[in-house]
Design a protein around this nucleic acid. Sequence first.
DNA 1: GTATGTGAACCACTTCACAGCA
DNA 2: TGCTGTGAAGTGGTTCACATAC
Lengths: 208, 208
Amino acid sequence: MALEIPEVVIDRLPVYGRALALLQRQGREVVNSQELGERLGVTPAQIRKDLSYFGRFGKQGRGYNVARLLEELNQILGLTREWAMVLVGVGQLGRAIIGYDGFAPQGFRIIAAFDDDPNTVGTLVNGQTIRSVSTLRETLEQNKADIGIVAVPGASAQRVIDNLVDCGVKAILNYAPIAAQAPSHVRIKDIDPVLALQSMTFYIKGED
Amino acid sequence: MALEIPEVVIDRLPVYGRALALLQRQGREVVNSQELGERLGVTPAQIRKDLSYFGRFGKQGRGYNVARLLEELNQILGLTREWAMVLVGVGQLGRAIIGYDGFAPQGFRIIAAFDDDPNTVGTLVNGQTIRSVSTLRETLEQNKADIGIVAVPGASAQRVIDNLVDCGVKAILNYAPIAAQAPSHVRIKDIDPVLALQSMTFYIKGED
DNA sequence: GTATGTGAACCACTTCACAGCA
DNA sequence: TGCTGTGAAGTGGTTCACATAC
């Protein structure tokens, strides 16, 4: 049953999970695809179809048990364990990433941070002692990391990514403004606010 | 010709533009869809098809003039002018956004920044005097902003977004971890690194 | 000869609509 | 009765393949 699930579906599951977690905090026990869809701007059929790839989690005439469905989604996505991440690049962006308090509650932990600026290496940032990039390999040999976060300038990003891949990370979150390449066994997601802005301008440029 | 262009196509144009800008800096004058595709991990046919929505920019047997195509894309996307942005939320993330040096070179300028913490209001961050959120309306009446950037906690994000929409912004870049809603005449893009991580774990959870 | 531009074919995702179950 | 789960239908996007232009 596993390997024909569209990637868009996988991308939506965390969105569902986030909404369910909110409902749970609000004390809701049951939700139907209609209401969940309204909250997320997604059609109810979409939600039901997406979930049907993985099992039957609802009850006809009633809807979904919030806690149960959330638990199932966490299981499906692999969110029941901790994930170890390393950060490369401790400039202003990197510092914000280290300080971001949204990772830890979801089980994503930054276990080490690297930079190549001698003035930064050795300093303490939010409880992390910054290491030299040249020690990346040995550090990761001692403590495996699942995910690499790249927050270096575009010009050095691909090199850093290759390096991380070599050191065995299985996924990369890339903040550098390049279309990064990675071998197919390594997942990669680019986050670039400028690209987001540059596509929105197409739609708003004619207005007022 | 305009209104049947798929949104995915619009989302890819800035990616093409970014690659072309790099080629231009490297002194390249011509590129074909084959090479551009390899650099971006996109099929050549995809690129040609995407561009064909807007005109014929290439020369058979030769390829595309880098400078010309870049100029055309900038025109199409509305990137030949400056865009005024306001930031709401000057916590750690907001500070990183103010300090980010990737916006200005692309014509995106933060003209004002707001927070509701009395200890933050009035302080100077990267040359920006932080204003009270309560002055959002009057500030935007004096200086129109095209785009709002939201970097507040999830719990207040939708309220801030509604506020920005009321004040006439035409697009919103939302960093808060919610599925934000906006009226259809306002473009909105969510940026959430946690969602990106949570979908990648699906693929890497079975490994090693 | 070489690479674009583009209908046509293909494929993937979304939505429909309803049978089936609570 | 109400809402899920799901084949089938529909829609939208991608890739093919070749006529066309340089």
